[in-house]
Computed example of a mutant assay.
Amino acid sequence: MSKSVKVGNSCSWQGGFTLLEMIVVLVIVGLLMGLVGPRLFSQADKAKVQTADTQVKMLKGALLTMRLDIGRLPTEQEGLALLNEPPADERSRAFWSGPYLEGSVPLDPWGRPYVYRSVPGRGQPFTLFSLGADGRSGGEGFDADVGYLPAH
């Protein structure tokens, strides 16, 4: 609320809010955040899962392209680094046409490296996945593993 203050022969207005008005605004903002906040965080988690799925597919494409060139997939010791660094063995090095990725191998959306194994997974000649939001194997919802999982 504004107040009129008489100074000499003239009136001047001093603008401002009362403490009660500020509390009311803060309560309204708090209520809105309580309703909208969880929905926004849910969308962020969903976006991370979709990003992990997209990155795994991109890495799969790079792995399969490299396999066409050198005739094999990386060993577990070589891992995904082989997409950017030539193999140590001369026979494979002669056919390596990388790097197969622009930039370095990405971390998953939760900041951890993707898990790569040279053993076949479900429908793929390798296993490649993110451990999900919790960083542990298995899980449900946003904690579930994302990618080409090992056959159980």
Rank of each mutant, 00 (worst) to 15 (best):
75 T>K: 13
120 P>C: 09
62 A>M: 04
70 I>M: 06
107 L>P: 09
70 I>V: 15
20 L>S: 15
94 A>I: 03
53 D>R: 07
68 L>W: 02
27 V>C: 13
70 I>L: 01
13 W>T: 14
35 L>M: 15
28 I>C: 14
124 Q>H: 11
146 V>L: 06
131 L>P: 00
108 D>S: 05
10 S>P: 05
50 Q>V: 02
92 S>Y: 04
8 G>Q: 09
66 M>D: 00
25 V>R: 05
27 V>K: 03
75 T>Q: 09
81 A>D: 15
105 V>A: 03
116 Y>Q: 05
81 A>H: 06
90 E>F: 04
132 G>F: 00
37 G>T: 08
143 D>L: 00
2 S>H: 11
95 F>P: 01
70 I>A: 02
138 G>R: 07
140 E>M: 09
86 P>Y: 08
58 M>W: 08
99 P>Y: 12
7 V>Y: 04
30 G>C: 11
94 A>P: 07
66 M>W: 04
42 S>F: 09
77 Q>W: 02
66 M>T: 04
18 T>R: 00
51 T>D: 14
98 G>V: 08
15 G>Y: 09
60 K>N: 10
151 A>C: 07
103 G>P: 12
130 S>K: 00
94 A>Y: 02
52 A>C: 08
122 R>G: 08
8 G>F: 10
150 P>K: 10
34 G>I: 13
42 S>L: 15
121 G>V: 00
22 M>H: 09
144 A>Q: 06
144 A>R: 10
135 G>H: 11
32 L>T: 05
78 E>D: 03
90 E>S: 11
109 P>V: 07
97 S>F: 09
146 V>R: 00
7 V>K: 12
148 Y>S: 10
147 G>S: 04
74 P>A: 03
84 N>G: 07
34 G>L: 13
92 S>L: 03
152 H>T: 06
9 N>V: 08
115 V>H: 06
99 P>G: 13
121 G>C: 03
17 F>Q: 08
62 A>V: 10
62 A>D: 02
73 L>S: 07
1 M>V: 04
88 A>W: 06
53 D>M: 07
141 G>Q: 10
111 G>L: 13
55 Q>I: 11
50 Q>W: 01
55 Q>S: 08
31 L>D: 08
132 G>I: 00
115 V>L: 13
77 Q>R: 13
11 C>Q: 11
141 G>Y: 08
107 L>S: 14
67 R>Y: 02
141 G>V: 13
135 G>P: 02
93 R>P: 01
20 L>M: 14
66 M>N: 03
28 I>H: 08
38 P>N: 05
119 V>D: 14
33 M>G: 15
41 F>M: 14
81 A>C: 07
5 V>K: 07
21 E>W: 04
91 R>D: 12
110 W>A: 05
96 W>R: 05
50 Q>F: 01
120 P>Y: 11
78 E>R: 10
13 W>M: 12
119 V>L: 15
37 G>P: 03
73 L>D: 02
74 P>F: 08
113 P>S: 11
